[in-house]
Amino acid sequence: MPDMEASKYAARQARCADELQGSVRCRSLEKYLVAKNADGTRKNPMLWELLAPTDTEGMSESAIAEVMDYQLREAIMDYNRNFRFRKVNKNIDASTFQFICLTLLGFPDSCQADERRYRVIDEIGGGYDIGTWRRAHGPEREVFRRLAEHLLEWFAEDDEEDDDVAA
């Protein structure tokens, strides 16, 4: 059974990373977070599951998006470990990792995706063109996989704290 749990966790992490990486192309992260398909299903169900308030009844989409945006920023700012950035062969401290994540996701401004990517590449010391950076198995993907892992851990801790309070 542990292999099944590890497999489920890896699938959730990959899905979360996909959704996070998809947000880089958008001008508005808040709109991206609450986007729906034509049939009314969520375009980003994993981010919705992690970030949306538990009770959304009576809340507007923009209010829900603000809460999700806040939750995401809080989770990123709570990241407190060094990151072994294998794709660029560097150790990145927690504050640099936070900067990379926030910049790629469009915090504090929502300039063009490639401009945000150049800022990050410059921050880590260059050496990459945009095409290499955003490739399916490139450095950007590595960042989002680590962020996804952090989000899953962070929200699992929140659920455990909620369970402790309820007991």
Rank of each mutant, 00 (worst) to 15 (best):
A136P: 02
L151M: 13
Q98P: 15
F97Q: 03
L104F: 12
R145C: 08
P108E: 08
D122T: 10
T132N: 14
L147W: 04
E140H: 05
R146M: 13
E153T: 09
Q98Y: 04
D129R: 09
D109G: 05
E115G: 10
L105D: 06
G131L: 10
G127S: 06
R119K: 13
L102F: 04
Y128G: 13
D129G: 15
E142H: 07
A148C: 12
A148K: 12
R141P: 10
Y128I: 04
S110F: 09
F99E: 05
L102W: 02
E140G: 08
G106E: 08
L151G: 09
A148Y: 07
A113C: 02
L147D: 12
W133L: 00
R117L: 15
R145T: 12
T132M: 14
C111Q: 11
D122C: 02
Q98E: 13
G127E: 05
D109I: 09
D122E: 15
R134H: 14
C101H: 06
V143H: 08
A113L: 00
R135T: 01
R146Y: 02
Q98C: 08
F144A: 08
L147A: 09
E123G: 02
F144T: 11
V120I: 05
H150I: 01
L152V: 04
E153V: 08
R141H: 06
P139V: 08
F97E: 01
I130Q: 12
E149R: 06
I121H: 00
H137P: 03
I100E: 02
R116N: 13
D114I: 03
T132A: 11
L152C: 08
V120P: 00
L147M: 03
D122F: 03
L105A: 04
R135G: 13
F155Y: 15
R141M: 01
G126W: 00
G138F: 00
R135F: 06
R135S: 13
